[in-house]
C-alpha cells in the first residue's frame, strides 16, 4: 500500500477530526487492537486532538502532533504504524516468517504460506487461530522487532493446511514510504 507513496503528491490535505468522530475511532481501535484503555491513553491522550491526513486511494493516516500513529484504508481496520508497533509490540497478533523471506519482505512482496510453516516461521496455535482478513504484525526469524504489518488472506489454520500461495498481504514494511514519512 505504501510501496510508492510520495508525500508531496499523494497527500491531499490535513484536517482536524471532529470530537464525536474521534470518540468513535477510539472505540473502534480499542475493540480491534489488543490494548487496554490505560495504555491507549498514553499512546493517544484523551485531551489531544488528532489530525486526519487524507491521501490518495482512500488512505487516511491519523497523526498526533505531526507524527503518524495509525492509518486506515476505506472503512477497513485500523493499522498502527510500524514505529508505534515497535513501541507497543502487543497491539496486534504476531506471526513470524523465516529468515529467507526477509529479503523479499523488505522489497515489498506479500508473504507466502511456506514462509510461515517452515522451521523458522511461527503461527499461532490452533486455539488462538486467526481468521482471514485479520491485521497482524509480521516478525522475522531471529529478530526482536516487527518487520512489517499485514493482513491475513487465509485463516492461520488454512495457511498450515494449504501451504501454498499468498498467506499474508503486506500493508506496510520496514523501509517503505510510510516508514520514511516520520513527520507530516
Amino acid at each position: 500500500m505504501f510501496k510508492k507513496f510520495q508525500p508531496s503528491t499523494d497527500i491531499s490535505g490535513q484536517t482536524a477530526v471532529k470530537s464525536s468522530i474521534q470518540r468513535s475511532i477510539r472505540a473502534a481501535i480499542l475493540s480491534q487492537w489488543k490494548v487496554d484503555s490505560d495504555t491507549f491513553e498514553s499512546i493517544w491522550p484523551k485531551k489531544e486532538n488528532i489530525t486526519l491526513v487524507k491521501c490518495r486511494d482512500h488512505i487516511s493516516i491519523y497523526a498526533l502532533h505531526g507524527e503518524p500513529l495509525f492509518f486506515q484504508h476505506f472503512d477497513g481496520p485500523f493499522y498502527p504504524t510500524l514505529r508505534l508497533l515497535h513501541k507497543y509490540p502487543f497491539l496486534l497478533p504476531v506471526v513470524r516468517v523465516d529468515r529467507g523471506a526477509i529479503r523479499f519482505l523488505l522489497a515489498g512482496a506479500h508473504m507466502m504460506c511456506p514462509g510461515f510453516t517452515s522451521k523458522g516461521g511461527w503461527l499461532p496455535p490452533p486455539e488462538d487461530a486467526l481468521s482471514a482478513e485479520a491485521p497482524v504484525a509480521i516478525q522475522a526469524e531471529g529478530k526482536e522487532h516487527a518487520i512489517a504489518i499485514g493482513i491475513t488472506k487465509l485463516s492461520t489454520e488454512d495457511i498450515k493446511n494449504v501451504n501454498k500461495g499468498v498467506g499474508v498481504e503486506v500493508i506496510t514494511h520496514l523501509g517503505d514510504d510510510l516508514w520514511a514519512l516520520q513527520k507530516v
Binding site: D36, D38, T39, S42, H86, K87, Y88
Partner: peptide, 15 residues
C-alpha cells in the same frame, strides 16, 4: 497499569 512504550533504537544511517 499503562504499559510503557519500548524505546527502540534506530540506526542513524538507514533508520
Amino acid at each position: 497499569q499503562p504499559k510503557p512504550p519500548i524505546q527502540v533504537l534506530y540506526c542513524e544511517v538507514c533508520t
